[in-house]
Structure formats: C-alpha cells, structure tokens
Design a protein around this nucleic acid. Sequence first.
DNA 1: TAATGTTTAAAACAGATGTTTATAGCGACT
DNA 2: AGTCGCTATAAACATCTGTTTTAAACATTA
Lengths: 222, 222
Amino acid sequence: MAQTDTVTRILDTAEVLFAERGFAETSLRNITSKAKVNLAAVNYHFGSKKSLIQAVFARYLDPFTERFHAALDELEARYQGEVIPLEELLETMARCVLEVPAERNSLKVFMKLLGLAYSQAQGHLRRYIQEHYGSVFTRFAALVRQATPDLPDAERFWRLHFMLGTVIFTLSGLDALRDIAEQDYGEHVSVRELIRRLRPVVVAGMNAPLPQSTDDALPAAG
Amino acid sequence: MAQTDTVTRILDTAEVLFAERGFAETSLRNITSKAKVNLAAVNYHFGSKKSLIQAVFARYLDPFTERFHAALDELEARYQGEVIPLEELLETMARCVLEVPAERNSLKVFMKLLGLAYSQAQGHLRRYIQEHYGSVFTRFAALVRQATPDLPDAERFWRLHFMLGTVIFTLSGLDALRDIAEQDYGEHVSVRELIRRLRPVVVAGMNAPLPQSTDDALPAAG
DNA sequence: TAATGTTTAAAACAGATGTTTATAGCGACT
DNA sequence: AGTCGCTATAAACATCTGTTTTAAACATTA
C-alpha cells in the first residue's frame, strides 16, 4: 500500500510546514524532500499546490463538520424544541473543534492553519472553506440566535465573529504568546488551560451590554 | 524632489499590495510596475525587500508610538498619580491607533498589515516590531495593571492579548466579514461603527469573572 | 564649465518556483 | 506470458523571484 503511504506522508509533512511558515513560503520541494517523496507526487496525487492546501484543510474540517452536526443533532434532541443555552452551544463547538486534532496530537498545527486561512487566504481557500463548510456555521448561528433573543441580528453576527477572532487569534499565535508569557511569568501554559481562561471572556463578550447608539471621541476613518 | 516622490510612491504602493495579498505573494515587480518606478529603485532606496516591509510598518508605527507615549503622559499628568480607569486606557489606545491611518484614509490597510504582522511574520518582522515598539506596550501594560488590581497578573496578560486578538482579527479581516454581513443584512458597516460595537465586548471581556480553577469536559490537547 | 554625487533606466544574473513529460517499476487479471 | 492500470522516479520546462550590474540622465556644487 505504497500509494496511501505517500499521500498521507505528503499531507502530514505539508500541514506542519504550512503551519510553521505559511503557504507561499513553503515550496513543494520543501514538502517532498522532508516527506522523502518524489517531487512530482504532489501534482500526481493532488493535481496542484492549491488542491494540496485544500486537502490539508479537508482532512481536519470534514471530520469536524460531521462531528459538529452530530453533536448539534444530539443537543436538539436532548432539548426537545426548547431553547439550547448559549454556554451549551459554545461548549459543544469548542469540544468538536478540539476533538479532531486531539486524536492526532496536532491541535497546535490545526489552530495555526485556521489562523492562516483567515489571514493568508485572499482567494481560493476562503472560497473553498465557505463553500464546503459554510452550512454548519449557518446552522450553528441559527441556534445561537434562539439562545440570544435579546440581541439584534447584526449585533449577534458581529459578536460571534469577535469571539471567533479571539479564539483563533489566540490559539494560532500561541507559540509567540507563550514565549512572552513564559519569559514574563515563568509559567508554561497548556492549550487546555488557555481554553479555560478563554471561556469566561467569550461568554462575557457575548453577553455584554448593547453599545450606545451614538459615538464621538474617535476620529473618522476611511 | 524626485527622490522623495519615488520613495513615497514605493511605500504607498507596497502597503496596499502587501495588505491585499501578503508579503510573499507580492513581488517587487508588482510594486514597482504599479508604482511606475524602476525595479532597481527598491533595492537602491531600501536595500532589500525585508527592509521595505519594515519601512512600511515604521511609517505607521513611529508616529503611533510617539502619539501614544504623549497621550499616556497627558493621561498620567491628568490623574496625578491616581489610578487611570481601564476604559480610559483602552479608549486612549484606540484613539491613537486610529489617528495615524485616519490622516491618510488608510485604516483598512493598516489593520490588514497588523494582522499580517501577527500571522505571516515568523521571523524578521516580529523581531523588528518587538525591538522597536515593545516598550510602549510594556508601559501600557503596567498602567492596565494598576487599573485592574483584582486580576492576577497572568490572567490580565492573557486577557489583554485576547482583546488584541479580537480587534486585530476583526478589523484586519474586515473586507471578508463585511461582504458576508452585507449579503446577510444588507447593511454596510463602517469601521467607526464596528469600533462602537467592539467597545462593550472588549470591556466586558476584560471584566469577566475569573475562570474556575478546575476543568473537565474538554478533550486533552497536545 | 567641469566635476561630483545622486537617481533612473534597462538588462542580466543566479536561483527557486510550480508543473509537465517521458520512463521505469510494480501488481493484478486474462 | 502478456497486457493493463497505477505509482514512483528523474529530468526538463517555462516562468518568476530578489538582487546586481552597467550605463545614462540629472542636479548640485565648486
């Protein structure tokens, strides 16, 4: 079974290098040489570098969406039409996001990749993710809407993305932050502990009072 | 005054292209051709592409740190040794961050660049920024510490970065989010309004209750 | 005017990039 | 045995990269 071996070895190596240096900064030769695989193997098995990148994401996101849908099914069944509390929804999402990479001990890599997907993907990746995985988020957003009936739609939309930003930004830039934290406090922070710290902040952010409708004191911006 | 014109034309073009596509995806030929400047001019004036990138950041960050230090001076003088309230500190920082790009109507570009600095800078840029502008953040952090005496040091450290993540992530990925928001709500969001929305969320996050010390229900993570 | 230092211009450089091709190896089935 | 489909290999492809070099144009100063 040499072919499967080659494919997974390419994926395993690619995700690590992508997470470390980014997409453009990682050449196919970097990947294939480190994976001990022929250069042409990437184009043979995946077609192009773009498709490789998408495959790297799919290997995480496909199991995630499957799990997440299942978890939401279970949640809806348990609450029998009643409104699912916000904390329960957030908790469920967090659990599903963590489970998949946890099985491969690659949470750090996965988070870095998520961060890259937002910042480095001006084109194909953003489209790919939106096309393939947008529906899960839509379903989740609808449930959050029921859980926060007092929040105006637009406000909730933005707050969800604020929270997404907090989590992805933190966990994807974790290495750099951890370095600073260690040299400041001598304390080594685990991802698990970081999530414990994130939880009350995220919940408080979602439940924050509504902004005042008028605002000055800030300069105009183009 | 042809030389100044060339230099600023390079910087103006470079920052836009960097913000749009990232550093590695923007070639010097892209920059110089769009700026209607000779290719060799970049290496002549800046020495290298790396230095160009740093110069692009310096053009924002130098005025920012100057302003921010001055604003903090003024704040300390006004409060005469008394503790400066947290909201005042956050407000001041926000104002300073916004003022510089506001003068050039380039807030969007600046925020994108900040996002890139976090996610794309594995090497020289992160070092450059930390070296040149780390002291302002240290000063700010010390003031925030006085403003939040009940927060453990580590907790405050992380929450500051959580909030930084929220803001940078949101404003740097603004275009993509704005597209989604518009197609969902038909509402066009200005940066100014986004900041109005961000404020209560950030404050609530900083003031969130402390996390419980033990935690289960989440899978282990490497 | 002549000389000097600075900026632009065009071409060339060596190296790296993603992708393709042509060839060989291998296992399976008729 | 022989053929077919799939995979691995090595070499070559054209293109793009950042950087240098050479020469010309320019402005400034003596």
